[in-house]
Design a protein around this nucleic acid. Structure first.
Lengths: 336, 336
DNA sequence: CTGTTAGCGCATTCAC
DNA sequence: GTGAATGCGCTAACAG
């Protein structure tokens, strides 16, 4: 493999390596003529500087890491889309890591990244993460860090989230408005440290409207387990007339159980869910959704991360960015 | 930033840098005792070797690149999931690049990767790619390359695909079996070079059953344009009684138009589509789908790529891997 | 078994 | 304006 490098260019042009290096980086000490010659040859030979050598020398890699629980999920893939757009535009590279909601994987990933492989890291923490030492250790190295969506509120780093609590409040209120008296919340099994705005928005709405009988069912990753829990809920004595699902998956599980038990949506049960699925409109019946601004979150998080990486000052309002979610009302919460 | 490196470890332990390096890599020339001492201190100080230095020195980066048209798409995100699983297990890192179906972006990305940043590359080419010089140039550097899903058949590198043509044949035959006489195919606007098995499977099935009246409608990325084309199709004189969508998006557009025009699925129109959307079962009516083995494709492609990277011989059957898609028949193609 | 030396490719001093 | 020399942190060849 005849790698073309600075030395080779220098040889062909009878110049010093350092001159070539400077010419390519448009250093003003180099004459225009030399710059042009160097660039012409570089283009001709398809020269690409070795990124490891540059990174080693300059102690920066023009690479960021994105750590997410999963990617089989419209929300995170749209976030990644936003991140990649900004990164590509700024000439950065994006490393992707999946934790699969596993705290240990998350720890391992962060450990490996604590060494200059990347210039910065953005993460949405796993829901099994109860302890933030690994994040703290990462931050201690001085490397830029940004949280998005699933944040660690205790840490003083930029957060980019949606208005979970408010959106959740509105979604619950919407169910109440449509006549529900008895609303269950299908919650992510969440530890205390991770912000749990969705749950609190639900509770606040119930409290505000004087409905104390909260029903919170914790669901997880296993579809069959979720269906069992929902089945039990819908067959219980005080069966709810409304369900608010914290994530799309749980709404899907709810639909499945309703088909199975011949429960009519929305007549017998109204359903609303956080979801970024465009096809929710095609469901039977069309699913009312709380749509998170996923792409924007990714874009914003990346933009802020790059600002930190490039040591620009953050404006005060860039330290906690909240982008509003949007409720789309469809038949699943319609009047019977 | 008090970076801990080999030199520092060596200093603290009164050893040579090279000894420390070898100890950490479990070189058998180093005494067990020394190895233990070194490792203990490394663990204590949280030492992580600088990846750029290693990469520069060893001329490999333990990193691969995945280039896909988009990620907002269940198929590609499941592929990525498979890739990441294998990579994480093998201690590799994954760079992700999106082309947004833009040939020029694809070219730029490949150009930048032609310099040792990654040890190998897997790509599903953009549908605007008509010229493969950039891929050929990449391959010329000797770097491992693997195609998946959208391949360039002319090039002699491993291909991992699903049995597009066969699956497409079966899906079309399924529509025929359910009574369709007039089947339209909603096709990706595809150039000739990219394998177009889906279209040929459709045509073969029609030919086999003596139905010559093919109807191929080329759809694209813009939803509204697609809907217009489908609207026109469904309002035409020889309106089809079956639609086979090459990708999920087009099926969604079809449903939207059917709702709008009050066309009943499956009574007036049967619909089947390539799709990896789990929620297709919840559609109104549930959508019959051809499910591609996306996760497996990612896993297999990554496994083969790593084999090539590690210079292992490929078995003959690893050069062209085909993993079967699966048809799931639902109400959208049911008897009226 | 361990130390010394050299060099990966590049950017950056410091000379001239 | 340009060149020579240095070192980023690591691994590998060669000594001993």
């Amino acid at each position: 493999m005849d790698n073309v490098n600075l030395k080779k260019l220098a040889g062909e042009l009878n110049l010093a390596v350092s001159t070539v290096s400077r010419a390519l980086r448009d250093n003003h000490e180099i004459s225009q003529e030399t710059r042009d010659r160097v660039k012409a040859l570089a283009a001709k030979l398809g020269f690409q500087p070795n990124p490891h050598a540059s990174s080693l020398r300059q102690n920066k890699s023009r690479t960021i890491a994105v750590v997410v629980p999963e990617i089989q999920n419209n929300f995170f893939s749209q976030v990644l889309n936003g991140v990649e757009d900004v990164a590509q535009q700024k000439g950065y590279h994006v490393l992707i890591y999946l934790t699969h909601e596993d705290h240990n994987r998350e720890k391992d990933i962060l450990k490996v990244l604590r060494n200059g492989r990347v210039d910065g890291l953005m993460i949405s923490v796993s829901n099994t993460t109860t302890n933030f030492d690994h994040l703290e250790a990462y931050r201690q190295t001085g490397m830029p860090l940004v949280f998005f969506d699933r944040v660690c509120e205790e840490m003083d780093v930029p957060h980019i989230t949606t208005d979970d609590s408010k959106a959740s409040y509105k979604a619950t209120e919407h169910l109440l408005k449509m006549g529900c008296k008895n609303i269950a919340f299908l919650s992510l099994a969440c530890n205390l440290s991770i912000s749990n705005g969705r749950r609190s928005g639900y509770l606040q709405a119930l409290a505000k409207h004087g409905l104390g009988n909260k029903m919170i069912v914790e669901c997880g990753t296993d579809d069959e387990v979720n269906r069992q829990k929902i089945r039990k809920l819908l067959q219980s004595e005080q069966r709810p007339d409304g369900i608010f699902a914290a994530i799309e998956k749980f709404a899907v599980n709810t639909y499945e159980v309703c088909y199975e038990l011949n429960i009519c949506i929305p007549q017998q049960l109204k359903v609303v869910s956080f979801s970024n699925l465009a096809a929710a409109a095609l469901f039977n019946p069309p699913l009312s959704t709380v749509i998170q601004p996923a792409y924007e979150i990714g874009k914003e998080a990346a933009t802020i991360l790059f600002k930190v990486v490039e040591k620009k000052m953050l404006l005060p309002n860039e330290k906690k960015v909240t982008i509003a979610s949007q409720i789309v009302e469809r038949k699943s919460t319609g009047r019977s």
